[in-house]
C-alpha cells in the first residue's frame, strides 16, 4: 500500500480532525488495507451471533522502535490480542483497531504498520471490523500507539484459568525465553550490542488449537509478555493459590539471550516475550503436550510442577530449585530492567 497526500509525507494534526485529511487517511490508507467485509462504513460493526461462550480482550501497545527485528507494532498489536484470546482457548471472530498517531509520524511508517496489521489479521483468520484514529501533537506520543480489542468464540467446554490448576500438574513453557526483550534492546542501539536475534513474536493460536484438538485437559494457559516468565508464573501461582516449583536448569534460554543478559546483568526470566506461553496440565499429559508444542518450537520444555497449597513448607508462591538443588524464591524484579555494572 502506498499512499501520501498532497500536504506532505508526515501525519498532521488535521489527519485526526474529522475533516478532509481524516477522510483521506481513512479512505486512501486504512480502508484499502483493512477494508470492511461489506464495504459499509458505520458507527458500529455488526457481528453474527455465536453459539456458546464468547471471549473478549483488550490491550494497548507501545513499543520503541516501532519496527524491530522480527516484527513491528502493528503485528504486535494484532497478535497480542489474538494471543490473549488463545489463552482462553478461543478462536478469533473480530478485531478492533484504535490508532493514536503523533503529529510528524512518517506516512511511510504508517503504511508499513497498517500493511503488517492486515497480514497478521489474515494469518489469524480475523478481520478488523471497527476502528478509530486520533492524532496528538508532536511530542505528546511516541510516534504511534495502538489499542486492539478482540472477540473470540469458545468451542470447547474447558475452563482454562488459574482456578483449574491442580496439585501435581506439570508446568510447561512453549519455547525459549527472552528473545523479544533482547531483540528490542539491541534495536534501540544505545547499549551498542549487535545480534541477529529476532523477536519471538508469533501467534499462539496454532499450538493452542493443536493442544485442544488432541483432547488435552488444559488447566491454565498464560502468554508471557512484559514481565517475562517470572510474572506469568507468579500470577498463576498467586491466583490459583498453589505453590509452583521450577527447575532452574530446565528453563530454556538460548545462547544469545543468555549472553546478552550476562553482559548487561539482566534476568532472562524477567525479559519480555511475545510468542511464548506457559501451559499447565495434568502431569500424565505433559509428554503428549510437549510433542505437540515442539512441532512449533523445538525448545518447548517442562520447567516445573505444581506443589501443594502454599504452606509453612512452601512459603513462596513460586520457588526455583537451583543446579545445586537449593530452593530460592522467584524474583519478580523491579519493573524497568536497567543494565548494571555489579
Amino acid at each position: 500500500m502506498t499512499w501520501s497526500n498532497g500536504d506532505g509525507d508526515a501525519i498532521q494534526l488535521g489527519h485526526g480532525g474529522g475533516g478532509r485529511l481524516s477522510q483521506q487517511l481513512i479512505r486512501e490508507l486504512l480502508l484499502p488495507a483493512l477494508g470492511t467485509s461489506d464495504g459499509v462504513l458505520h458507527d458500529a460493526a455488526l457481528l453474527p451471533a455465536q453459539p456458546g461462550r464468547l471471549a473478549f480482550t483488550t490491550d494497548s501497545y507501545v513499543v520503541r522502535p516501532l519496527i524491530f527485528p522480527g516484527g513491528d507494532i502493528g503485528r504486535l498489536a494484532v497478535l497480542g490480542s489474538i494471543n490473549d484470546l488463545a489463552m482462553a482457548g478461543a478462536i478469533p471472530v473480530a478485531l478492533s483497531l484504535g490508532l493514536i498517531l503523533e503529529e510528524g509520524l512518517p506516512i511511510a511508517t504508517l503504511n508499513t504498520v497498517v500493511a503488517s496489521i492486515q497480514r497478521a489479521a489474515v494469518e489469524c483468520g480475523v478481520a478488523v471490523v471497527t476502528g478509530d484514529t486520533k492524532v496528538v501533537e508532536r511530542g505528546k506520543g511516541d510516534g504511534l500507539f495502538i489499542n486492539t480489542s478482540a472477540v473470540g468464540r469458545v468451542d470447547h467446554n474447558l475452563c482454562i484459568h488459574p482456578p483449574a490448576v491442580m496439585a501435581g500438574d506439570a508446568v510447561l513453557v512453549s519455547g525459549d525465553l527472552g528473545r523479544h526483550g533482547v531483540a528490542i534492546l539491541a534495536a534501540r542501539d544505545h547499549l551498542g550490542f549487535r545480534t541477529t536475534l529476532r523477536s519471538d513474536l508469533a501467534s499462539l493460536l496454532p499450538p493452542v488449537q493443536a493442544l485442544l484438538a488432541a483432547g488435552l485437559e488444559l488447566h491454565c494457559l498464560r502468554d508471557l509478555t512484559r514481565g517475562g516468565l517470572a510474572s506469568a508464573i507468579d500470577e498463576i501461582a498467586t491466583s490459583a493459590g498453589w505453590a509452583i516449583e521450577l527447575q532452574e536448569p530446565a528453563i530454556p534460554v538460548g545462547a544469545e539471550v543468555s549472553g546478552a543478559c550476562q553482559l548487561l546483568g539482566l534476568d532472562p526470566l524477567a525479559m519480555a516475550n511475545e510468542g511464548r506461553m506457559v501451559v499447565v496440565l495434568p502431569q500424565s499429559q505433559a509428554e503428549e503436550a510437549l510433542t505437540l508444542l515442539r512441532q512449533v518450537e523445538s525448545s518447548a520444555a517442562q520447567i516445573g510442577t505444581v506443589l501443594t497449597a502454599a504452606s509453612p513448607n512452601n512459603p513462596w508462591p513460586v520457588q526455583l530449585r537451583s543446579e545445586l538443588g537449593v530452593l530460592r524464591p522467584l524474583d519478580l524484579g523491579q519493573g524497568e530492567q536497567l543494565p548494571r555494572i555489579c
Binding site: S322, E323, L324, G325, V326, L327, R328
Partner: peptide, 9 residues
C-alpha cells in the same frame, strides 16, 4: 552465594 544457596549447603 545466596542465589546458588551455598550459604545453606
Amino acid at each position: 552465594l545466596l542465589r546458588h544457596g551455598i550459604d545453606q549447603l
